[in-house]
Amino acid sequence: MTRRKWTEEEIDFLKDNVGNMKLATLSKKLNRTEGSIQNKLKRLSIFNTKAQTGYLTTYELANLLQKDPKSVRGWITKHGLKSTIKTTHSSRQFSFIHPEDFWKWAESHKEKVDFSKIERQSILPEPAWVEKERKRENPTTYRVWSIKEEKQLKMMLTDGYSIKEVARKLNRSPISVQRKYERI
């Protein structure tokens, strides 16, 4: 069995399509074995499609935002955060988000992002407006519920008050009231 030398066109095709196609598809398109393609990727130092593209996975973005990855996936499926699905190695698929696409989305969905939790220059390029949002953020600290407040919460909900009405009366956020009610 003789080795066939890689052409510049094949290498360019490989670089352009790694992460966009499964290894098996690349193998068919280039008429090479999967092992040959894996070896060439190693020799070209292409180990990770994320490093090659500059994109972030949903998990990486969630960590940088101090959010749950499910929230980021929800932004993609329900709120229009642009992402690209890429396949690494043979079959694993990931959603990748370009940092510029994230910032464009975040600018029009500011209510979903706590900018005070994002470390400066951690998602590059960071637009100038982000610093203003960081300063605007006034993160509230958790207030411990008193026994009296817990009793009021139970009584008001039993009497038919809505979560929002209870929140207003107790000077709490609706989500705080909902979570507390679920815990007690």
Rank of each mutant, 00 (worst) to 15 (best):
R143C: 06
Q38W: 03
T49G: 09
I76P: 01
E149H: 06
D101K: 03
V130E: 01
T53S: 15
F96Q: 08
E60G: 09
M21E: 11
L157A: 08
R134Y: 05
K40R: 14
L124F: 03
T84S: 10
E119R: 13
K151R: 08
Y142Q: 04
T58R: 05
S91P: 00
P127M: 04
E9V: 02
L170Q: 02
R4T: 14
H79Q: 10
D114G: 03
S83H: 06
K104S: 14
I175M: 10
F13Q: 03
K135R: 12
I76W: 03
Y59C: 01
R134T: 05
T140C: 00
E34P: 11
I46T: 01
L170K: 01
T140A: 06
R168H: 04
T58Y: 01
S36D: 07
E10R: 08
L56M: 14
G80E: 00
D101Q: 07
Y142D: 00
D114A: 13
R73E: 13
S83A: 15
T49A: 12
W145A: 02
K154W: 04
Y142L: 07
N138R: 14
K15S: 08
K40Y: 01
K29Y: 04
N138S: 07
K151M: 11
S162G: 05
R134A: 08
A106T: 07
W6E: 06
R172F: 08
F47L: 12
K135E: 12
Q152D: 10
V130M: 04
K22A: 10
I147M: 09
L44K: 01
T7K: 11
L23V: 04
K82P: 02
R172I: 04
A51Q: 09
E165A: 15
S36H: 01
L65P: 10
R179S: 08
R120H: 11
S173I: 00
L23Q: 13
N48W: 05
Y181F: 15
E133V: 03
N39I: 05
H89R: 06
S116I: 07
W6F: 08
F94K: 02
Q178P: 00
E119I: 14
L153H: 03
I37M: 08
R43L: 09
N63M: 12
I11T: 11
G19Y: 02
S90M: 03
F115Y: 05
V72M: 02
M1K: 08
S83E: 03
